[in-house]
Amino acid sequence: MKNKKEKQKNTFQKILEVIKTMASKPSGLIGLTILIFHVILAITSPLYVPYDYKAIDPSLMLNPPSSEFWFGTDSLGRDVFTRTILGGRTALTVTFFGSLIALLWGGSLGIFCGLVGGKIDDVVMRIIDAFLSIPWILAMLLIVSLLGTTTLVLIPALGFFYGKGIVRVARAATHDVIAKDFIVSARARGHSNISIIWNEILPNVRDAIMVEGAMRWSWMLLGFSSLSFLGFGVSPPTPDWGLMISNARGLMSFAYWAVLAPIVGLSSLIIGINLTADAFAKALGIDRSTKAPV
């Protein structure tokens, strides 16, 4: 029991250390700040929105930013500021859980394939390759139009499509450690496959998979917003950046504010996640920009 507590304490310290290292570089600090800002905003924004996000008022159509409406109003007279600070909520929730699902299935299938190898690995990887060759947006549109656009459909669907890439990464990371003698040693001792995966492989591939998952998160966010933009993500009147951009894009030449605010929201979040993921990778020692020794 004491052992377990010690271990938890250790992991906690480790996480703290990683975050510290991430924040020690400017890019990491910026990324973390943006990400945390967005997360806090998404959680707390309903408490202090100035207006009702679905209140339509034709008399206030396309007002420019003013002291009353900070980011102006859209073509239906709704407050853009209100809709912008609420607009990331669905996207963040859906993509966060989507990434978790992608991580889980992609990671475990990748490790499994890397471990067993041979025919099973061949077959599974060819199937994954086949899926990779299908344009995901078409497939998503098909799924969404068949099953509807509820979050319960979107999360697993996005999780499935973005997990394919993680399978490859997890499999490659497993291949790196599978030939090492500590795995052979565990095998010779007679450990089961599950025990080998859990105790020997997972601690060594976890970092690579988590970094990949963080990168996938930002891509998935972009993907989700594209779906909304096409009208297959969030259904109106729920505020969402992709949807807002789509609705206001025709009026861009004379009502730039209605497009600008959601664009800033979406791109800053993606940049934030990207920077964080990069800093995360560096803090874990997976640096993808190492130079040649000479």
Binding site: K180, D181, F182, V184, S185, A188, R189, N199, E200, P203, N204
Partner: peptide, 14 residues
């Protein structure tokens, strides 16, 4: 039981 040549590889670094 087995003991290997290179302890860097035979001990799990994590």
């Amino acid at each position: 039981q087995l003991i290997f040549q290179n302890p860097d590889e035979s001990l799990n670094p994590n």
